[in-house]
Design a protein around this nucleic acid. Structure first.
Lengths: 228, 228
DNA sequence: CGGCATCCGGGAAGATACTG
DNA sequence: CAGTATCTTCCCGGATGCCG
């Protein structure tokens, strides 16, 4: 008898009912984990387990709910992978990819928090998105190179030219330098001023190819000043 | 004996434990209503009840919790108002004000959602922030004026010059045109192409001063294209 | 094994009533 | 007016289990 009321409450009581575009964005991605799921898809489609592996802490049922919600809102789509994988892959829609500026401004603002701890665990997508966000155009002006990354099982290639950087997820080939290791080590090298040698001795990071170039690449990025 | 574990779970289980700056931002403003509370403070300090009045749907205890949380994270501060008000006011810290780009990109992205409904209720802060976000530099190039707004009990003045707009909350004086009415009506006029006459007949909006200028002002803003 | 559905405990959000 | 107290509802997170 109260069925209509129950349905209504589930679908709309939890919304902000606010014409502000930002409030509507929060209706879509304001639930826990939603934005981080999108972040993990920013470099291309992934499978359920891959997303889960890069988001330690999310539980399977919550990931299922978020993927469902984001699909109904048109942020991502579900696709069958070609055999023999025959599993599902989740891919952002064009509009979903347009969420990248959200990570830029959120990342900048969050990184300038006095309580931000850059030594916590980090996913591959996070560190590579941060490169897009934090590159200093001045420092990158004279820099031009293709740099490869192997982080876990994922390969990425960054192309720096004319003060800009583009990063795609693809097999590492024909690169001038190649970083192999954990995302946290890459972050320590780029933002923490930890010497490459230290990281290599720890076995956290390995560099192949032009070491001087790799070193130069790591100097292109600057974190925002801490506030407060 | 499990006390330590319980304490630990309370403080950190709800965090993302992710070095990504965006994830840390979500630790701070990812809870429900938090970003909208910040939005309501973007034009200056407000009192508890003023915030609550502009966020229909938030309950008093949740607002209390958000204000406490945002204060401990350094996003806002609590101040005593000078007598005779002698009440508390909440004001963003400089770092809190730096969150404005979040509303810009969130607003743009949310407004390009196919499901965005611009006819829902709207706060004064929302519509004025949207003016900052959605102004089209080309259209505003030749436009120069001071425009006043009275929305509910709040007064704002927008100054447009050189394709840019600045908006502050202050008493409306020495303006070329003055909008008086509800935020929703202003949105309908600027984004919904609803004629001023219609809104005035409904009593939703009133315009004083230079009507041609007011009309021109309303043409400076464009919503992003809908995706999908 | 990957992708879910189901059940349960704890805790956050929401509504209402109440206090200084 | 500015919150607090309380109660209910619902979401999050973990575990288990089903099914291809």
């Amino acid at each position: 008898m109260e069925l209509e009321k129950i349905t209504e409450s589930k679908s709309s009581r939890r919304r902000y009912n606010d014409a502000c575009g930002a409030a509507h964005a929060l209706d879509i991605v304001g639930e826990r984990w939603a934005l981080l799921v999108i972040r993990e898809l920013m470099f291309g489609p992934k499978r359920f387990s891959d997303i889960r592996a890069s988001l330690p802490g999310i539980s399977a049922n919550v990931l299922t709910q978020r993927l469902e919600g984001l699909e109904t809102f048109g942020v991502l789509t579900r696709k069958r992978l070609p055999p023999p994988a025959s599993a599902w892959a989740y891919e952002l829609t064009p509009w979903g990819y347009q969420a990248e500026p959200i990570f830029q401004v959120f990342g900048r603002w969050g990184a300038s928090s006095p309580l931000h701890d850059p030594t916590l665990p980090l996913s591959a997508a996070s560190i590579l998105l941060s490169f897009r966000t934090m590159i200093d155009a001045n420092r990158a002006e004279g820099f031009s190179a293709r740099i490869g990354f192997t982080i876990g099982q994922e390969d990425f290639v960054a192309t720096v030219a004319d003060g800009e950087i583009s990063i795609v997820r693809e097999e590492v080939r024909d690169v001038a330098a190649h970083f192999i290791g954990r995302a946290e080590a890459l972050a320590a090298a780029a933002y923490g001023a930890v010497p490459l040698e230290t990281l290599e001795q720890d076995g956290a990071l390995r560099v192949e190819g032009d070491r001087a170039l790799a070193r130069g690449f790591l100097t292109l990025f600057v974190l925002p000043d801490k506030a407060g």
